[in-house]
Nucleic acid binder design. Structure first.
Lengths: 349, 349
DNA sequence: GCTCATTATGCTCGATCCGAGCATAAACAA
DNA sequence: TTGTTTATGCTCGGATCGAGCATAATGAGC
């Protein structure tokens, strides 16, 4: 059944090198440091916010809570992340999921640094806003502060037409660098798909694609910092959105995209809600994250029909009109449906 | 807007320690080695197969092609992976996506080893079976060889009732280990959701959940190898599915689950197809991966209606009946729809 | 050449889902 | 009391989808 042919093709030494018995391989595989980073997300007053660490001193740059993974202290990545976040911010994380591991050289490097290579493992954590105490409030910032073009709650953001799309088009017309055949879709098509121009539809989940396109085009500050040719050779313009340290804005982009995707097929939206809530509060929270494409009555039908919530029996007055029933998350859905979530249709804006 | 309160809460040293300027921090953050692993998947004669490296000698164990990440040689993880795979197997990978990074201690450890801590970054690669040359054939194995309970192509696999579910139920009744409150869903509920008993529905995407449940219950060989209490303290039974080295079966489980999920909303199925194919061949390939819940006529309607394919104009004779039109992937869908894929409904078996 | 088995392909019917809007209910403010 | 505001119930038409019927085109066996 299994021939020996391929055993010859796969030199045994390469496996030995990878997992030697008792010998060191520092030579072959220089050790790297692993940084654990958390995008901790909440929704505060209908605004999606992320916990950042502000560093005063030289240029102000926000970063995500993070710390190195220490195999001696941490049994798992997630455990290490939880203990770092707890130590740095006092928060005990609830829902946590791994996003992506970034190993790029260059992205991370600060000019002049001689630091060991750092690999980032990004995590998404969702938390209930009621847990945020006053002292911490200041370090929570709207995620649209870093991604203004993602905020469609008041319709298509003006910054797209005023700044982003024109400059992207300009970039698309510039001569391509040599040897970039790994991009089958032409630049204009990428712009069209990412930013919903020329009849393309806005896909709220493509947050990372948009950020990477802007990075490639030199239109975010990080591109200049990292010495991207595109950013150095043209357009000394103000670049949209606040930058972050290292590759943290990229991790945040991944976090936003994942959150937007995930609430549609997993009931993670309730991680962001207090125990009791009205259906309209739930809708507002979903809209804060996705954008406002929701029809109120249909949203109710959807959420109730899916068995995601159950009435508590209580009412909330002071809504500005008729009192609203309070609901709570109905945990039993997890046992009933394979993919419960707020199944809003994608890409309808 | 941003208070200084939290700056005090986040000790600056912890950040310095993480990213010092010019100093070494080996002390605080022991360096680890990063292993890149690829689950390279193809569909060969309607069988989903994965490329494995067989190691003869002592106990036969398959592993995935892998190698250490070397920041000096590799600009990115993905680049490193491609060069390792190319070197070990001669294959130039096409479609590649990152799956997950595993940092668990213990899983990886071989008893008695004193090796440095190894972190695994798992990748999924999809490739066209026609690229497999004869010499390599032997090292491609059905992924159901490692996960027999995932093969629903002939209906619900008998091994579920004959072995897996009874033993899981037995495990569920055993006294829980102290302090396992991180499991809100009781064991029986997890069994129900994972393995579709007691009215639960089979969700073909939950491959990893099932594997991890079996691991926890000591019902896969790896659990014993890693010294899991559950596996050591009971049930010296034959354990279903072939084991793999290190945590490779876990990575493969992730790969299968991701493949099953992804073909529904991205046209990655065509990575597994030759350039021209009939609609029924396409359906067979989808079924090889998902299980056979597809109605032939509706599948045609779905695939053609979504604009995923276009006729080449050629016909394929020798189908055993009426000749079939040949189709090719219609790449333009990528520019038309935000989430093109074979939108088979999840969880209908 | 005729018949039959086999596969390909086109079409229809009914259930369900979903977007959109109408209509009513229950609070508060002027 | 009236008007405004928010909550909630319901309906209608279009789109989607599961399921099945019906026809078309090949090769095999006679």
């Amino acid at each position: 059944m299994v021939s020996d042919a391929n055993v010859r093709r796969i030199p045994r030494e390469s496996l030995e090198r990878h997992h030697p018995k008792g010998t060191s391989m520092r030579q072959e595989a220089p050790a790297v440091e692993i940084g654990l980073n958390a995008a901790i997300v909440a929704v505060l007053d209908n605004e999606p916010v992320v916990l950042v660490v502000r560093e005063d001193g030289n240029g102000v740059q926000d970063s995500l809570p993070s710390g190195p993974f220490s195999p001696l202290k941490h049994r798992t990545f997630e455990g290490g992340l939880r203990s770092w976040v707890s130590e740095q911010t006092g928060i005990d994380l609830g829902y946590v999921e791994q996003l992506y591991s970034f190993g790029d050289r260059g992205r991370h490097a600060q000019p002049g640094d001689e630091m060991p290579h750092v690999v980032s493992v990004g995590y998404l954590a969702l938390t209930d806003a009621s847990q945020i105490d006053e002292a911490q409030r200041g370090s929570w910032r709207s995620w649209y502060h870093y991604f203004p073009w993602e905020d469609w709650r008041k319709g298509r953001p003006a910054i797209l037409e005023s700044e982003i799309v024109p400059r992207l088009r300009e970039w698309a017309e510039r001569p391509q660098l040599s040897g970039d055949p790994a991009r089958p879709v032409a630049r204009h098509d990428r712009i069209r798909m990412c930013f919903a121009v020329d009849g393309g539809a806005w896909d709220e989940e493509k947050v990372l694609d948009r950020y990477e396109l802007l990075y490639e085009a030199g239109l975010v500050e990080e591109a200049r910092r990292d010495g991207r040719e595109a950013a150095l050779s043209w357009s000394p313009v103000p670049r949209p959105g606040a930058m972050m340290r290292f590759d943290h804005r990229r991790i945040l982009a991944t976090a936003i995209g994942r959150t937007r995707a995930k609430i549609k097929y997993r009931p993670v939206i309730f991680e962001l809600m207090p125990p009791d809530f009205t259906l309209f509060e739930l809708q507002r929270t979903v809209e804060a994250i996705l954008g406002p494409h929701l029809h109120k009555q249909n949203f109710r039908r959807l959420v109730e029909g899916a068995g995601l919530v159950e009435p508590t029996g209580e009412m909330k007055t002071r809504t500005g009109g008729r009192p609203a029933k309070l609901y709570r998350f109905r945990k039993e859905v997890l046992l009933e449906r394979p993919a419960p979530g707020v199944r809003v249709k994608p890409g309808r804006v």
